[in-house]
Design a protein around this nucleic acid. Structure first.
Lengths: 342, 342
DNA sequence: CTGAAAGCGCTAACAT
DNA sequence: ATGTTAGCGCTTTCAG
């Protein structure tokens, strides 16, 4: 073992409690005592044993961020911010990879990690409102990304319907008439894919454009490959689309690849827009027009809310927080301007 | 608090030790006793308190993966595998973001996380041989990615010199004569960038091509933007390169973007190759030729070696393990073939 | 402002 | 095969 509180107490000639108070600052400590203790700490190189602290406090200092995949840059960017914020608040963040699997999501949700984590930030994919409501665990939970109506949990996300509307309006404004949507499993109306589809339909309706089911492509996952496949199918239609709105940037990037492979021009023949504003989209050719969510804010809010719940701090404001987003126009819809990467 | 061992012991009418043995299996337990205990566990919904276990065992069950940035897809892919492997071995992996900062790397190396993590997998960027050798902490350490000669630690990486040689030979074989290299801080000869530069020079020498200092571009970081900037400079030369070898895929992707922006053709005017085989490179236009390291093997080896050191298991084999790699030819060097994404 | 001591839940050494 | 118990290092009453 290393240096413990006891060692410091002996060295400084004070009690355990006093050392603890110097370290934690719960109670005032006399200036001279404090200095002696601090000196002993420095000399012996003391670091608190967190396991002991956690055992005593009944908390572990660990919070989990459960996401479908770390290799989706959107989640990697989110995770990077969340890790930093958690650290600032004295917590360590661990990543849980659900791989979009129902079992993994349920396991996390129902508290398989009790005694391991103090709280959970969860981005559900397969699990819906019913499962969240039925949850038995009392581990604090913050939801991100998905809409789970009326659940008694904090929920942080962009307004998916409005964001999608904005994306599609942009395509409409460019004069596109046959606008396709590529998303995943839209049959399940609890999912964000459904909300984004709804925004898509609303924007079409606003513009007086008909909704054409054949222009909606369903994918199994949310990756680049899914976008490629779906786009190939769309291009094979008798009347292929002149624009595509992808559920996320990865799907949109896949679509971009498929259009280019097919020898058609972006945006001349097909304009493409996604959601997420991942860095990859800024540097591709063509660069990708996208809806940029306030990732910094989402991650920061999620961590702070969760920590507040864990520590029992009063939390003001509604459970559901909608974070801002904006349209970033790039080459995939408006073509190359000065040619510079933004 | 929740349900503890004691609660189970009372319910099942046995001692604490017996319950512990049912849970951990250290000692044999009679079949009937086991069943009674198991039933109590199920009924009361017991999960072990890890803080207590860790306090008692003197270990936390946490290992850290310290990388320069999670948003570099190479590291995200590595992390995803490492998280999975750690979980299989009963450990939880936490990510430490050094942001390529010297202080952050030193802090981790010198054991600021003592009592928090049982071991560290570390991908150094700023820190070199001297710092690693001077390390005082006794937390087990496994190095990945960088060459730190003669340090008494496990080290897992590809042969950077050989990998670079392979990449540049490929460009030579395509008939390129003015081959540039884009890397970071090559002045420091302890870094991988230096090794990759050496491989580059060796391949040039083999081919009887002169080494031209003006064709070596130095970047501050390892991102796409760095690649763009460096490539712009290279293109501004009186005699611009006809091929570029990027330190990693992100830099190569930035270079790709710069070439395209400048209105030149890839690979006709400039061929581009990187290292890492990140998924992004497979779906860009043009797709990126790259050296693919065995990421699965690197991550798996790193975790297993580290856990072996933590648990004091005898570890066979040398400290330094070189993992395989291979060249993947794509459009950025050989042009579009059938147009299909691999 | 400081000290003494209980006890968080668990594992492992020692008994039986 | 099972029981008893010390003690890991810390925080936090309760005393002084």
């Amino acid at each position: 073992m290393g240096v413990s509180l006891k060692d410091i107490a002996e060295r400084a000639g004070v009690s355990l409690a006093t050392v603890s108070n110097v370290v934690n600052g719960y109670r005032p400590v006399g200036e001279r005592t404090r200095q002696r203790v601090q000196q002993a700490i420095d000399e012996l190189g003391y670091t608190p044993n967190l396991s002991a602290r956690h055992l005593r406090r009944g908390r572990t200092g660990l919070i989990a961020l459960a996401i479908p995949e770390l290799t989706n840059p959107y989640f990697a960017e989110l995770a990077e911010i969340a890790i930093r914020e958690a650290g600032r608040l004295g917590y360590t963040l661990v990543m849980e990879n659900t791989a979009s699997a129902y079992e993994a999501e349920m396991s996390l949700l129902s508290g398989a990690q009790r005694h391991v984590i103090d709280g959970l930030i969860f981005s559900p994919v397969r699990v819906g409102r019913d499962e969240v409501l039925a949850r038995a665990s009392d581990t604090p939970l913050v939801l991100i990304g998905e809409e789970v109506y009326d659940a008694p949990y904090d929920h942080i996300a962009i307004d998916n319907v409005a964001a999608s509307r904005l994306a599609v309006r942009h395509l409409v404004a460019l004069g596109r008439r046959r606008i396709a949507f590529i998303g995943a499993r839209v049959d399940d109306d609890r999912q964000a894919a459904h909300l984004r589809l709804r925004g898509y339909r609303e924007a079409l309706a606003e513009a007086g454009l008909p909704f054409r089911p054949e222009l909606v492509a369903v994918t199994a996952q949310f990756g680049r490959r899914d976008g490629v496949r779906a786009m190939r199918d769309l291009l094979a239609l008798d009347e292929p689309p002149d624009a595509v709105f992808g559920y996320n940037d990865l799907i949109a990037i896949g679509a971009l690849r498929a259009v280019t492979e097919a020898g058609r021009a972006v945006p001349a023949d097909v304009a493409v827009v996604g959601i997420d504003d991942i860095e990859e989209g800024r540097f591709g050719t063509p660069s990708l027009t996208t809806i940029a969510p306030a990732k910094e804010e989402i991650a920061r809010l999620a961590v702070h809310r969760l920590v507040a719940r864990i520590e029992g701090t009063a939390v003001a404001g509604p459970l559901t927080l909608q974070t801002p987003f904006r349209l970033i126009e790039r080459e995939s819809t408006v073509g190359a301007a000065d040619g510079a990467v933004r």
